[in-house]
Design a protein around this nucleic acid. Structure first.
Length: 370
DNA sequence: CCTACCGGGCTCTGCCATGACG
DNA sequence: CGTCATGGCAGAGCCCGGTAGG
């Protein structure tokens, strides 16, 4: 505690203001000693925001500097958002979560909105994304970059539908610099070429379509994961090309440490169940998303399946059954065991089906007994 | 009727560090 | 120096149904 106070004293004043605990400390006599005027918040701005229902402590914690500005456009922003169909509570929430939004001019907002509307069918859609993630819309003030981004993304030849999915799912992609997005595409194409692929354009399109988060990951992460999967599974170039263009595209955005951890854990687990390196590889190639599941959860799922008399080999061949929740898996195993279902004879595919299909199957099995 | 295969839907923001800039 | 813009990170699944072909 004593150390924290010393730190506050040594830090520049703005650091204090970004910490909730310190705000009182900063406005006390200590502050006037360090920096007299500059640190003052704009009282009329505070009143304005407050009357709009903005959560001031939250705004202060996030972007303290905005509250000290003399020129802001909160009224213009509110009016603008309202005209697009945003309700007052949402507007307040947007400002509370991304205060810098009130520094944008009306002309800027109008322009940016028009650019977004190139991709979205209605104002309603944009409002939904805005209320979900104000930062995605407001973090950058560079409309020219946004324009170039749109042109760049379209130049990749991704379909209008995929562009829409991309920006609905990962709106931050819009606010990345074009260079950053371009770097990612170039990385993907380089990966394709290094694997002897013949169509790097198509390769990158496919990965983007299958992994909508790709642009909000760092190229370092993607590169590290690509290299790790290639080496840890000893993938041949064509195996790698196939994997990354199918379900493997999605596991690229796992944090590198998690990917390694989950991967090692699964390898050990399979080993303990009597499976070899070939089985490990086969399982990943069959359904690489098993690497998404945390090691504890995955181990538990495997244990539950083994206890039900299923062989590890069967799961290796059909890892998609691990895609279902533990609760679902347990329930289904319970139902099946009551019917005396024989997994060795009938396989485990029954576990990998929708609720509707599973129930229908149960009914057929049930009535067949009587 | 059945299964295998496949792809899609949901959703993923909010925070921090750092360099640029005035 | 303060503020802004930008890059990067943590966290860690589940479920549905179209369709081809037996």
């Amino acid at each position: 505690m004593a150390q924290r106070q010393i730190l506050f004293f040594l830090w520049p004043v703005r650091r204090c203001a970004s910490l909730p605990v310190a705000s009182r400390f900063c406005s006390s006599k200590q502050t006037t000693f360090i920096l007299p005027q500059v640190n003052l918040e704009n009282e009329s701005l505070l009143e304005n925001l407050s009357s709009m229902g903005v959560d001031l402590p939250s705004a202060r914690r996030r972007q303290p500097g905005v509250l000290r500005k003399q020129l802001t456009n909160e009224q213009g922003l509110a009016h603008f958002l309202k005209s697009k169909g945003t309700d007052p509570e949402t507007i307040a929430s947007i400002i509370s979560r991304f205060p810098r939004s009130i520094t944008r001019t009306c002309a800027h907002l109008e322009e940016r909105w028009t650019l977004w509307r190139n991709v979205f069918q209605s104002d309603r859609e944009v409002v939904e994304i805005l209320s979900r993630s104000p930062e995605s819309f407001f973090r950058s003030s560079d409309n020219k970059n946004l324009q170039e981004n749109l042109e760049f993304l379209m130049s990749l030849g991704i379909t209008a539908k995929d562009l829409h999915r991309l920006l609905t799912t990962a709106p931050r992609t819009f606010s990345n610099s074009v260079e950053l997005n371009r770097n990612m595409v170039e990385l993907l194409q380089a990966v394709c070429l290094s694997l002897g692929g013949s169509d790097p354009q198509q390769f990158s399109r496919t990965i983007i379509s299958r992994n909508l988060y790709i642009f909000i990951r760092s190229t370092n992460r993607i590169r590290a994961n690509v290299d790790f999967l290639k080496s840890s599974l000893s993938l041949s170039p064509s195996e790698a090309l196939t994997l990354f263009q199918s379900h493997g595209a999605q596991i690229l955005d796992l944090s590198h440490e998690s990917l390694k951890k989950n991967s090692e854990s699964l390898r050990r687990k399979l080993q303990s169940l009597g499976c070899g390196a070939g089985d490990f590889k086969a399982m990943i190639l069959n359904y690489s998303l098993v690497l998404f599941i945390s090691s504890e959860r995955l181990n538990e799922k495997l244990d539950v399946l083994m206890e039900a008399g299923i062989h590890a080999q069967q799961v290796v061949q059909k890892p998609k059954v691990l895609d279902f929740s533990l609760v679902s898996i347990r329930q289904r195993l319970h139902h099946l065991s009551r019917l005396g279902y024989d997994f060795q004879k009938s396989g485990i595919a029954v576990l990998d089906s929708s609720k509707k299909r599973f129930s229908a199957k149960m009914e057929r099995l049930g009535s067949a007994e009587e």
